[in-house]
C-alpha cells in the first residue's frame, strides 16, 4: 500500500450499510418528504454481503427501521463481495434480488427515490444550506451517518481497531446542542451505535450548535481548536473521547 489512508473494502461496506443506508432511518424521521414518498407502503430490504455486513431496512408507517441480519426481509439482495455492494451504493453495480421479485416496484421506485433524497441531504449544494430548516435536517442526518460510521470504523478498519483497543467500556454521548444526540456504546473494544443516549454515560462530547457541527463535518474547523474556543465541550472519561476523535478523523477517508 503506497498511500497512508489504510482504508479497505470491508470497512467501506459496513459504513455503506450501517452508516449511509442506515441514514435512511434519520431521513424518514426528520424529512417530511421522505415520509410522503413512503406513504402507506410497507416493505423490507435485506442486504446480504458475503464476508461483510448483513442487515435489513424495514419501511413501515412512514418510518425506516434498521436491523442486523436478513432473516425476515421481503426483498433479499445478496452480494458476492464487499466491493460489489460498495459498487451498488456508488451506483456502478446493479443489485439483483434473489427474494421478493413481486416487491421490485418498491425497490426500483420508492427506495430509489428515498436514496436519491438521502444523497441530497448528505451532499447538499451550498445554496441548499442557506435554508435553515434544510441545514438542520441535513446536519441531523449527517450526524447519524457519521456517528454510526465511527462504530463501523472502530470495529473493522485496521487503524480504527487500534484506536478502539484503547477505549474502555461504557457509553459515549455525542450531541449537537439544540438538535440531536446519539451514543456509542463501547464493550470489549467494540463500538455499537445507539440513536438513544443511555441514562448514564462515561464521557460526552457536545458540539455547541448546528453551525459548529456543520463546520466540523465539512472540515472547516478542527475539533481540537473548537474545544479551546469552547465551541465543543468534552467531559468524563477523556481517553474515550480522544480515541473516538481519532476514529472520527477517519470517517472522511471513507465518506468523501
Amino acid at each position: 500500500m503506497s498511500d497512508m489512508k489504510y482504508t479497505d473494502a470491508v470497512t467501506m461496506a459496513y459504513i455503506n450499510l450501517y452508516g449511509v443506508l442506515g441514514g435512511l432511518t434519520a431521513l424518514c424521521d426528520v424529512v417530511p418528504e421522505a415520509r410522503k414518498i413512503l406513504g402507506k407502503s410497507a416493505c423490507s430490504i435485506g442486504f446480504d454481503v458475503k464476508n461483510g455486513p448483513a442487515a435489513t431496512l424495514t419501511f413501515v408507517g412512514g418510518r425506516c427501521i434498521f436491523k442486523e441480519g436478513v432473516e425476515n426481509c421481503a426483498i433479499k439482495i445478496p452480494f458476492s463481495t464487499c466491493e460489489k455492494f460498495n459498487g451498488m451504493v456508488d451506483g456502478t453495480v446493479t443489485p439483483i434480488p434473489t427474494r421478493g421479485m413481486t416487491k421490485l416496484p418498491f425497490l426500483l421506485g420508492k427506495f430509489k427515490k428515498l436514496t436519491a433524497l438521502l444523497e441530497q441531504y448528505l451532499r447538499p449544494t451550498p445554496d441548499m444550506l442557506e435554508d435553515e430548516t434544510f441545514l438542520k435536517q441535513s446536519t441531523a442526518i449527517m450526524f447519524r451517518v457519521i456517528v454510526s460510521s465511527v462504530a463501523q470504523i472502530a470495529n473493522h478498519d485496521k487503524v480504527g481497531r487500534a484506536s478502539a483497543s484503547y477505549i474502555v467500556d461504557g457509553a459515549i454521548k455525542l450531541e449537537i446542542g439544540g438538535l440531536t444526540s446519539a451514543a456509542l456504546i463501547a464493550k470489549d473494544h467494540m463500538l455499537t451505535f445507539s440513536p438513544k443516549v443511555p441514562k448514564t454515560f462515561l464521557s460526552c462530547m457536545q458540539f455547541a450548535d448546528v453551525k459548529t457541527a456543520r463546520d466540523l463535518f465539512d472540515g472547516k474547523i478542527n475539533s481540537v481548536a473548537a474545544v479551546g474556543l469552547g465551541d465543543v465541550k468534552i467531559g468524563g472519561m477523556i481517553s474515550q473521547i480522544d480515541n473516538v476523535n481519532r476514529i472520527l478523523s477517519r470517517v472522511e477517508l471513507y465518506l468523501k
Partner: peptide
Amino acid sequence: QFRRAANVIPSGVYGHLGPVEGCFIPVD
C-alpha cells in the same frame, strides 16, 4: 487572548499546555 492565538497558531495553544491535551474541563 485565546481567540487571538487561535487566529494565528494551530489550535491556539497546542500540546500539553493547551486546553485539549491539558484536559482543561471545562475550559473556562
